[in-house]
């Protein structure tokens, strides 16, 4: 046990998890914005926007994340010349964020839509009755209630996002999954303890997020 702790101390495990947390933060932020726009598309009265929103969600939601990430590294960067920085590590990080964002935006959109379904139709009708146009009624009446009703499913999406950040290892981002591979390569005598350490790390990150989501979903629920 003591030997294993010495081995662990040779690796920057916290630093590797920090990369995952940064990926989660930026991808979560952008995906929430994109997801909100998509949700607005999907409930808008304009058929072409409706179609665009539905098509986006169904295509991205059904494409494996690994393929999206590898597409970023093998096509977006070398072929389409999408480059965020001359420095590879920075470039790959943001390519990873883009991949995670476009994928999870579809899930954020659907989580929000489930929240929108909790808003009684009378609310939308009342908004229209007082003369609010679509954007205003969405901004002032529907989305504030929808977000509060969507906390629990949004929390689920965030938890999935946290764990999915390990997939960007396929996109040349050095994070905890890469570090785990390195550790297994070098410390073959500790394969199981290494696996367990990494798994426990994720539990430590994810459980509070789940508890927070449950707490907020109760606290913020719109009482009707």
């Amino acid at each position: 046990m003591a030997d294993f702790l010495t081995v662990l101390s040779e690796y920057d495990i916290a630093g590797a998890y920090w990369v995952n947390l940064k990926l989660t933060f930026f991808a979560g932020l952008f995906a929430l914005v994109l997801g909100t726009i998509l949700a607005m598309f999907r409930i808008s009265p304009i058929p072409s926007l409706n179609l665009a929103g539905t098509a986006y969600v169904n295509i991205l939601r059904n494409t494996p994340l690994t393929i999206i990430i590898v597409f970023g590294l093998a096509v977006l960067w070398p072929v389409l010349r999408v480059e965020f920085s001359e420095v590879f590590t920075v470039n790959f990080f943001w390519l990873g964020v883009v991949g995670l964002t476009v994928y999870h935006a579809a899930f954020f959109c659907e989580a929000l839509r489930s929240g929108i379904n909790t808003v009684p139709v009378g609310q939308a009708e009342a908004a229209r009755a007082i003369g609010l146009p679509f954007l205003d009624s969405a901004r002032l009446v529907i989305f504030p209630q929808a977000f509060r009703g969507a906390i629990a499913p949004l929390g689920n999406v965030v938890i999935a996002l946290i764990k999915n950040t390990t997939v960007v290892a396929a996109g040349s981002v050095s994070e905890i999954a890469t570090l785990m591979r390195e550790m297994i390569e070098n410390e073959s005598n500790y394969v199981y303890p290494i696996f367990l350490t990494v798994a426990v790390g994720f539990v430590i990150i994810v459980v509070p997020v789940g508890m927070l989501a449950t707490y907020l979903s109760r606290r913020l629920a719109v009482s009707r």
């Binding site: 590294l73 093998a74 070398p78 420095v87 790959f92 290892a169 396929a170 040349s172 890469t178």
Partner: peptide, 15 residues
Amino acid sequence: TQLVEVGGYSECILQ
């Protein structure tokens, strides 16, 4: 140097 880390050597050959 800068390093690209991929999942398999065939991807490296492509790059």
